[in-house]
Amino acid sequence: MEPMRRSLTHRGTVGPLPVLVAAAVLAAAPACSSPESSDAAQEAAEVLEAEEANAPEGERVATVLADEIEVRSEPGGGEVVHTLASPNDLGADRAFLVREVRGDWLEVFLPVRPNGSTGWIDADDVEITVTAYRVVVDMAEFSFTVTEGGEEVLTGPVGIGTGETPTPPGEYYFTELLRPSDPGGEYGAYAFGLSGFSDTLESFAGGPGQLGVHGTNDESGLGGEVSHGCVRVSNDDIVWMAERLPVGTPVEITE
């Protein structure tokens, strides 16, 4: 319905997968290396290959361990472009969807404007978990699909933004799970915050125009353009998601 308001009650992360992922980096051996160093490099490569083969499949989620985290423009010594607090403004532990791993540095999607922004964080400052879930919202079909490990596990209708307040397409992730104070109200039983923001509303009802995926008290609007940018789903579907999908789950919205 509307971009996320500040009147919702934080429920906390539901069902995070407690799987730690170790990132390893192998330095390439120079062409002039001795047979001993070549053997060592080959052994290291085999170890890395085995670790990658045994690593859980899915998307990496980085949850901040301290009360804030510095986001840099480049891995290592890049300029600090953001310092983000944890918990976030809605009371949830700060989490990021990881885009790339480069040694001890992680490129992550950022919950800031403009949509699709990324930055680099130190892997030592976060805990890494993995989720096999993914949500795809097809605005052309007014539908969503949840997959787990690439297998379809749930589909349903959606309501999306109107022509004046459209839902912006892009790659996002869930930043928090909230329980509305009135489960029979316009946000339905639960609401996930998204890492994206409205392109037309700089602010809304005291908030920054943050997008969300939430239930609804009027399911007749599903299958049409009815919201201020958020994605509406049925209450049954949002309850199913709330019971299974962790913060950090990737959400792709397509036109």
Rank of each mutant, 00 (worst) to 15 (best):
T13I: 10
T13Y: 01
G15Y: 01
G15D: 11
P16N: 02
P16D: 02
P16K: 02
L17R: 07
L17Q: 04
L17H: 06
L17Y: 04
P18S: 00
P18T: 02
P18N: 08
P18E: 02
V19S: 04
V19P: 00
V19T: 12
L20G: 11
V21T: 07
V21I: 03
V21Q: 01
A22Y: 08
A22V: 10
A24Q: 10
A24V: 15
V25L: 07
L26K: 11
A27W: 08
A28N: 07
A29G: 03
P30H: 05
A31Y: 06
S33L: 00
S33E: 03
S34W: 04
S34N: 04
P35R: 06
P35L: 10
P35E: 05
P35F: 10
E36T: 14
E36Y: 14
E36C: 07
S37L: 15
S37D: 15
S38K: 15
S38D: 13
S38L: 15
D39H: 14
D39P: 00
D39W: 13
A40E: 11
A40H: 10
Q42F: 09
E43C: 04
E43Q: 13
E43H: 13
E43T: 13
E43I: 08
A44C: 07
A44L: 13
A45G: 15
A45E: 12
E46K: 14
V47N: 06
V47R: 13
V47E: 12
V47W: 09
L48D: 11
L48Q: 12
L48G: 08
E49H: 02
E49K: 01
A50D: 12
A50I: 04
E51Q: 11
E51P: 00
E51Y: 07
E52R: 12
E52K: 05
E52F: 00
A53E: 06
A53S: 09
N54A: 15
N54W: 05
A55L: 09
P56E: 09
P56R: 04
P56T: 09
